[in-house]
């Protein structure tokens, strides 16, 4: 995973609560056995007027011009602004893969669904939780100001508005650390190998039935 560095980017608003992972990446694209290439199908059903299937070249598909991400003023956006409970529904990590592949690096919302929130960090995306009123305020600003940019400072846990105003956000220390250093969590966990083995030995002694071989 790449290290997450501070950046300034264009903000695109999706003014909807409960955006689910089926909307973020429809199931037909889950058939891929790869981790990459999901960007063109991000929000597929909202973004295109026809029905998308895996393998279809997206450049020639009819666009839904009403959809935010298709509008000129939001082209190249790297920050997604949205409403409550973003990423609810299925656990598919294809959702953050698609978001990242599309070019988003941060998502701002009043709340996120748990699994999606965790999945973001494993893919170098920073989900930022802000108060509902602050989010509503940002929506208004984005609407009023073409080319509205925000600067994201991971170290300082703040976002800066064009006028210089700064808003801070909460973040778990370990998640921040992994994001900052682009760390492989598995490698980190395996450093505790002995501890895991120790636990496993005790666990096996007290709950041996857990360790029965599954012979099919």
């Amino acid at each position: 995973m790449e290290k997450f560095s501070n950046f300034t980017g264009l903000v695109a608003p999706i003014d909807r609560a409960n955006v689910d992972t089926d909307a973020i990446i429809p199931k037909q694209f889950l058939k891929s056995i790869k981790r990459t290439g999901f960007g063109p199908n991000l929000f597929d059903e909202w973004r295109y007027l026809d029905k998308g299937e895996p393998g279809m070249p997206c450049e020639s598909r009819p666009l839904n011009q009403d959809f935010v991400l298709n509008q000129d003023r939001y082209l190249g956006a790297s920050i997604l602004l949205t409403k409550e409970n973003f990423g609810c529904g299925s656990s598919r990590e294809h959702a953050p893969w698609a978001i990242q592949d599309f070019g988003f690096r941060a998502i701002i919302a009043p709340s996120f669904a748990d699994i999606f929130y965790n999945n973001c960090f494993k893919n170098g995306i920073l989900p930022i939780v802000l108060d509902k009123s602050v989010v509503n305020d940002l929506f208004q600003k984005v609407k009023d100001t073409p080319g509205f940019n925000l600067s994201v400072d991971l170290e300082g846990q703040t976002i800066q508005l064009p006028g210089g105003e700064s808003i801070s956000f909460e973040l778990d220390t370990y998640k921040k650390f992994c994001l900052q250093n682009g760390l492989d969590e598995i490698g980190q966990t395996l450093e505790m190998k002995e501890k895991i083995e120790g636990f496993e030995t005790r666990h096996r002694q007290s709950n041996p039935w857990v360790f029965e071989e599954l012979v099919l």
């Binding site: 656990s91 598919r92 990590e93 953050p96 699994i115 965790n118 999945n119 494993k122 893919n123 969590e185 598995i186 966990t189 395996l190 895991i196 496993e200």
Partner: peptide, 14 residues
């Protein structure tokens, strides 16, 4: 439920 990175994490580390 967990995501795919976590599936890999559990496979590798239990």
């Amino acid at each position: 439920g967990i995501g795919t990175s976590e599936v890999e994490h559990v496979l590798a580390t239990q």
